[in-house]
Amino acid sequence: MNPSRGIALKLGSVAFFISLQTMVKAVSGHIPAGEAVFFRSLFALPVILGWLAYEGRLHSALRTTNPWGHISRGTVGVLAMGLSFTALGYLPQTEVTAIFYAAPIITVVLAAIFLGEQVRMVRIGAVLAGLVGVLVILWPRLEGFGGSGEDDTLRAFGAILALIAACCVAVAKILVRKLVGIDPPSTVVIYASLTAVFLSLLTAPFGWVWPTGWEFALLLGAGLAGGVGQLMLTTAYTHADASTIAPFDYTSMIFALAFGHVFFGELPTLQMLAGAGIVVCAGLVIIWRESRLGRDRSTSRAVSPPGS
């Protein structure tokens, strides 16, 4: 184990995933979300397949006794990706990132319902606090449904899509927890990618457009960033415990703030930052509590990049 290397890899993966979001947002005004999901997934495949082939695990990664489980997980993942890419077209990148912080909190609720996990007062309090934080983030946008401007309505719609996407991420995490008890993480990763390529291709009849050279370069970059980010994320959890590096998920806000301001001139509101702070604190309490209870989520976290 090398915790310093694990943390460095985790930070690198977060930077790559936020870079991915930035490139998708840059083309969102012209490229449909389904098309963006296709190219992101397609161009990530060579990185993932090359990594598995280099480590001699490609053949074993393709073997599974639970193909429908992987297809279910991949389907939910595609839905989360498509909704988040759509939301990026309507909202500042920092807001989409902040709303996605709800995913671990929703996961706790779903784990209690579907996996029978016990949730005691500390985590119940953290979940309630996190939901309050999400409401603080969403409330200004939800007021847009009653506004007269079309832009306000679209931003409100984007906020709802981002929240639904976060719920899909939480469902995907629950499915991953079941899958990693049967197959290795590499199998989960490869089938998620293959499912994403196939399902997103089915959206082609619904308005795909021919990308310009610059847009194609950004889509290529998004796919490669996703593949490299996934590789770094999975490797990070082989060098350090989940409780050590999981909190570094929240550095994504720093990257989102920087990229959003530099490339799109976005400035976050104080209310959004306050809500994000509440959600982050709630998430850190949940991570701390899981660590105290000895529930290592390293495997499921390693194959579940947030918001990508």
Rank of each mutant, 00 (worst) to 15 (best):
V197W: 02
F157H: 11
T187E: 12
L138H: 06
P305M: 02
G213N: 03
V119M: 09
V76H: 09
T238V: 10
V209R: 07
Q271L: 15
G158E: 01
V24K: 01
A33G: 05
G77D: 04
F259E: 03
R155P: 07
G12R: 00
G213W: 04
P268F: 02
G74I: 04
G12P: 09
L88C: 00
P92K: 00
T86G: 06
L9A: 12
P46N: 04
M272I: 07
Y191V: 03
G275Y: 02
R297L: 15
F16P: 09
A102L: 07
T187Y: 14
I113E: 11
P185D: 07
W214R: 12
L163H: 03
N66W: 15
T299N: 13
P184C: 11
L138D: 07
V169F: 14
G6V: 07
P104V: 00
G89N: 01
V76F: 15
L231V: 15
Q271T: 15
A242V: 05
A36G: 08
H30F: 11
P104K: 01
G77W: 04
V209C: 04
D183A: 09
V279W: 03
G82H: 01
R155H: 11
T94I: 15
G277E: 06
V136L: 13
W139N: 13
L58F: 12
I164G: 12
K10C: 12
I99R: 01
D183Y: 08
I160W: 08
G74E: 05
L142K: 11
F198H: 01
R297D: 13
E290L: 15
F259V: 02
G213F: 02
F100Q: 07
E35Y: 00
A15L: 15
L128D: 11
L52E: 03
G227A: 11
F255K: 00
M23G: 10
S41T: 12
A276M: 03
K178G: 13
G69R: 00
I18V: 14
R57P: 00
G29E: 07
L161R: 06
M121F: 14
K10F: 11
T187V: 13
A156M: 02
F100A: 09
